[in-house]
Simulated scan of single mutants.
Amino acid sequence: MKLATYNIHFGVGRDGRCDLVRALDAVREVDIIGLQEVDSYWDRSGNVDQVELIRELMPEHDLAYGPGVEVVKRDAVTGAVVRGRRRRSGNIILSRYPILTVRNFPLPKYGASDPKLDIQKALIEVSLDTPLGPLRVYNTHLCHLSEPQRKLQLEFMLDIHHRAQREGTPLSGTHPKDASFASEPALAPVPENAVLLGDLNLLPSGEAYSAIAGATGNRWTRVPRLGGFVDAWVAAGHDEQAGIGRGEVEGATSGDRSRRIDYCFISESLAERVAAAEVRYDAEGSDHYPVIVTME
């Protein structure tokens, strides 16, 4: 089973050309995919609904969309509000396995004054029944402005992860007087194991990385938090510190190949199931490269 995270930059590649098909081709064979920077009705990406386009272009996958941004759409000529359309931008999870539940959470943000761009980020969660067993999958895109804000967002996300089983499924139990609420089959329990995919905009050397991967212990090994996550890139045998320094480095996912900022984190209990992890440097459909992890 393959997992992937890919910031598709709304389909605009390093050549400045918007081609959503080209972007998707890089991960088409993957079973579970987290896409970031997916647009609906933005001038920059051709004023199309990329969510519905992706649904059409990837019919073998189930799809869940979690926008962080949903704002007014105005006509480029007249400036009038376009009713029935809003600009949206956010994260998609694609899965060859049926998506059983979906939740979407806005992440904390500080706000920034002009000329700094600040964007509302979100975390989408789905539950799946996979060959690895029941699985929660998260996908997100963290703040690019500051390490403290990324750390705040990660702590918020980890709290959601640790609360998930206690809170139960989005539709839990039965209604004592109205049978219509129980007319559908009961949902399966919230999966224990989880995967976190995303453009986290952080380096392995920072405090934000330690917040999710665990603090360093003796001999610089990581000590994951109980019920926490392991970096699948490291579980596959690669160097954790890849992406630190100048010039091209192994495992870098940014367009200039100088930083590792896109990740697949997995529950610690799944670490031994990681068979391989790679960065697809032949992908040209974005200003990022996709990370693909193979699980046994």
Rank of each mutant, 00 (worst) to 15 (best):
N7C: 12
G11M: 08
L24V: 01
R28A: 14
V30P: 02
Q36D: 00
E37C: 06
E37Y: 08
W42V: 08
Q50R: 09
E60K: 13
Y65N: 09
Y65F: 15
K73E: 10
T78C: 09
V82E: 14
G84R: 10
R87A: 11
R87C: 13
S89W: 07
R96K: 13
V102L: 05
N104F: 04
F105R: 04
D114R: 13
L117V: 15
L117W: 11
E125T: 11
V126Q: 02
P131S: 10
P131G: 09
L132W: 08
Y138V: 02
H144E: 01
Q149D: 10
L154S: 03
R163S: 15
Q165A: 15
T174F: 05
S180G: 07
F181R: 11
F181V: 07
A186Y: 04
N193L: 11
N201G: 03
S205H: 08
G206C: 09
A211V: 13
A211Q: 12
G214P: 06
G217Q: 03
R222T: 01
R222M: 01
P224C: 14
R225G: 07
A232Y: 09
A236G: 04
E272Y: 14
V274R: 08
A276G: 03
D282S: 12
D282M: 04
E284V: 12
Y289T: 05
V291P: 00
V291F: 05
V291L: 11
V291D: 00
I292D: 02
T294V: 11
E296G: 14
